[in-house]
Design a protein around this nucleic acid. Structure first.
Lengths: 129, 129
DNA sequence: CTTCATGCAAATAATTTGCAGTAAG
DNA sequence: CTTACTGCAAATTATTTGCATGAAG
């Protein structure tokens, strides 16, 4: 159970209902886009506005509370910030799975100072093969 | 010197002026987004329409003539299809450099059939460090 | 010739902004 | 209390579509 209130406060963000709910929704889904967060939260929280989600996604990205996962030809999804990992993205069902992978993660490049890595493998998951 | 006319025809696309020019613009830039293609080509070809660029980018992606390079928080860029490589994306100047990297490219994942890889390293290029 | 592509304008979708009212600390 | 956040509506930006005309093969 993640303490979203502390997480937000540690990152200089007021812990509003809207923010904790957005984080909960992202955590439940693992990886989710803005429209799906909205649909998810609207059910239990009908007055929530899409603009609020947009504004908070931007803020939480800036504070590194969440990470953007851009998807080819679709809208970006978002995930909670966690240890470095790669994404296995199923081209058939769209599901995203996280995977630790040291061989991908420990590398130096000449003349380039790496700040962050984005490694997405597109293909077919076990179910869709 | 790439023969864009043959490239298009081999991929079941009519070789129109617009398409060859879009490919030339992408090749000149290396990696470029739709608005910048438009600005680039407008100079020498003022009647070109943005809708035509959108339509053709979609077709050329479908035919695998070009590849989408999604960029965190920005519009996607496009590049000509070429051998597998990774991208070094400078967070300061926005420049993208291609790099071959075998250690990234030869890998199998259990229970996942990889179709394509997208490996972007964000950081600071030599000039911006 | 025939078919498909283009360019325009209009439609739709996505994202951002301004502001009055509200909640967090 | 004070400052920052929310929700709404409006504005802006991005993308797609329909259709008459023009170009490719």
């Amino acid at each position: 159970m993640i303490d979203y209130i502390s997480l937000l406060k540690q990152n200089d963000l007021k812990a509003t209902i809207q923010r904790t709910n957005i984080l909960k929704s992202i955590n439940r889904a693992g990886h989710i886009n803005i429209d799906d967060i909205y649909d998810d939260l609207k059910k239990s929280y009908p007055t929530l506005s899409l603009a609020t989600i947009y504004k908070n996604i931007i803020l939480m990205l800036e504070q590194n509370v969440i990470i953007e996962v851009p998807i080819n030809g679709k809208k970006s999804k978002y995930e909670l910030k966690k240890d470095e990992h790669i994404h296995l993205i199923c081209k058939s069902c769209g599901n995203i799975e996280d995977r630790e992978l040291d061989s991908y993660c420990n590398i130096d490049i000449e003349n380039f100072k790496i700040v962050s890595k984005q490694i997405n493998l597109y293909g077919l998951c076990k179910n869709c093969q």
